[in-house]
C-alpha cells in the first residue's frame, strides 16, 4: 500500500503542478490510526499528506457537489471503485460535468468496518495496524491481534464486484478487473430463504433501533437533495417520530430513492451509530434492477438511470 500512496502523492503533485486540476479531494490520516479524513489539496506541497489504505472508507463523491461546481477549474478526486461509480452516477444525473472532474482511480482492497474491528478488540483503542497478506494485525496498548481481513471488511466490500472505478482519467498503479459476475453473498442468499414473517421481524428489529439521526443519509453520496423528503413539511410525507412505521417507511423510501443509483459503497452502514443493517435492502433492489432491467448503476455516464427509463418489454408478471 505504501507504493500506492507514493504513486498517489506523486501523481497529485504533478497534476497540481501542471494545473490539470485546481484541487484534489482525497484522504488524510484522521484522528486515530484506524481513521482517515477527507482532505482538499490545492497546493502541491500538501500532496504528501495524502494517504490511501483500508481506513479510507468515506465516499468522497459527495464533496464534489460542494467544490466541483464552481467554474474555477477541474477537480480531481481519489476514487475507489464505488467512489468512481458514484461520480459516474453524478455525471448521469447532471450533478457534475464530466469535463469538470478528473477521476484518479485507485486500487481498493476493501475498507474497514470499524464496528467489526471494535468487536474484535473489545473496544480497546488501536494505535497502529498493519496488513500481512490476508491478515490485519491490530496493535494497541498491551495487545496485538491478528485477524482475517475478510472478517473486518465492510459488508459492501465483501460483495464488491467493481474494486476499481470503471471510468477514470488516471490510475494509480493498475486497475483491477471487475468480477465477471456478482460475487457470491451467502448472508444475502440465506436471508432470502427465510420466510416472510421472519424477514419482517428481522427488519422490524433492525429499524426499531433507529434513532432517526440521519447519519446514513448524510453519508450517502446519492442523497444530495437540497431538502430531504423526510425534512419537508409541505407535504409532511411522514412523521419524524421514532414510531416504527415512520422509521421503517423512512428507510424504505431511502432505498427507493437510491434505487438504480446506489453504488453499494457501504457509507450508510458504516455511518450508522447503531449498526443497523442498511445495505441489505439496497442490495436486494440493485439486484432486482440488474435482473429485471439489465441496469447497473455507475458504469456508464451516458446511460439513462434505470428508474428514469423504461422498456416497453419490461416484465410485468406482477400486474393483474
Amino acid at each position: 500500500m505504501a507504493d500506492v500512496e507514493q504513486v498517489l502523492r506523486e501523481t497529485v503533485r504533478k497534476l497540481l503542478q501542471e494545473q490539470k486540476v485546481c484541487r484534489v479531494i482525497g484522504y488524510a490520516r484522521g484522528s486515530s490510526a484506524l481513521r482517515s479524513t477527507p482532505v482538499f489539496i490545492e497546493d502541491e506541497k500538501d500532496a504528501d499528506s495524502l494517504v490511501f489504505d483500508i481506513t479510507c472508507g468515506n465516499n468522497l463523491t459527495q464533496y464534489l457537489k460542494k467544490c466541483g461546481k464552481a467554474g474555477d477549474g477541474r477537480v480531481g478526486i481519489v476514487a475507489k471503485g464505488c467512489d468512481g461509480r458514484a461520480v459516474v452516477q453524478y455525471i448521469a444525473e447532471g450533478q457534475v460535468k464530466r469535463e469538470g472532474i478528473l477521476i484518479i482511480g485507485i486500487p481498493c482492497e476493501g475498507v474497514l468496518d470499524h464496528r467489526k474491528a471494535c468487536d474484535k478488540t473489545q473496544g480497546r483503542e488501536v494505535s497502529e495496524y498493519r496488513i500481512e497478506g490476508e491478515k490485519v494485525v491490530l496493535k494497541g496498548k498491551d495487545f496485538e491481534v491478528s485477524l482475517d481481513k475478510f472478517d473486518v471488511l465492510s459488508d459492501s466490500c465483501r460483495r464488491c464486484r467493481y474494486p476499481s472505478p470503471p471510468v477514470h482519467d488516471v490510475f494509480i498503479t493498475e486497475p483491477k478487473e471487475a468480477a465477471s459476475q456478482e460475487p457470491e453473498c451467502k448472508e444475502f442468499d440465506e436471508f432470502e430463504k427465510l420466510d416472510a414473517s421472519e424477514r419482517w421481524a428481522f427488519f422490524e428489529n433492525e429499524f426499531s433501533k433507529c434513532i432517526r439521526c440521519y447519519a446514513c443519509r448524510n453519508a450517502c453520496p446519492m442523497c444530495y437533495c437540497e431538502e430531504c423528503f423526510v425534512d419537508q413539511s409541505n407535504p409532511q410525507w411522514f412523521g419524524k417520530s421514532t414510531d416504527l412505521s415512520d422509521t421503517m417507511i423512512f428507510h424504505i423510501v431511502r432505498v427507493l430513492h437510491t434505487a438504480g443509483r446506489c453504488v453499494d459503497c457501504g457509507a450508510c452502514e458504516r455511518a450508522c451509530p447503531l449498526g443497523i443493517n442498511l445495505g441489505l435492502l439496497n442490495k436486494k433492489v440493485e439486484k432486482e434492477i440488474q435482473e429485471r432491467f439489465g441496469y447497473t448503476s455507475g458504469l456508464d455516464p451516458d446511460e439513462t438511470p434505470a428508474m428514469a427509463a423504461f422498456d416497453e418489454e419490461d416484465k410485468q408478471e406482477f400486474i393483474l
Binding site: 416472510a196 434492477i289 434505470a306 423504461f310
Partner: peptide, 26 residues
C-alpha cells in the same frame, strides 16, 4: 411504463421485507 418500473421495485422491496404480496397489487 414509467410507473411499471416503480411498481416492480416497490413490490420487490416490500415483499423482500416480508410484507404480504396481497396487500399491494397492480
Amino acid at each position: 411504463y414509467v410507473a411499471r418500473r416503480k411498481f416492480a421495485v416497490l413490490k420487490t422491496l416490500l415483499e423482500f421485507m416480508g410484507l404480504e404480496p396481497g396487500r399491494v397489487q397492480f
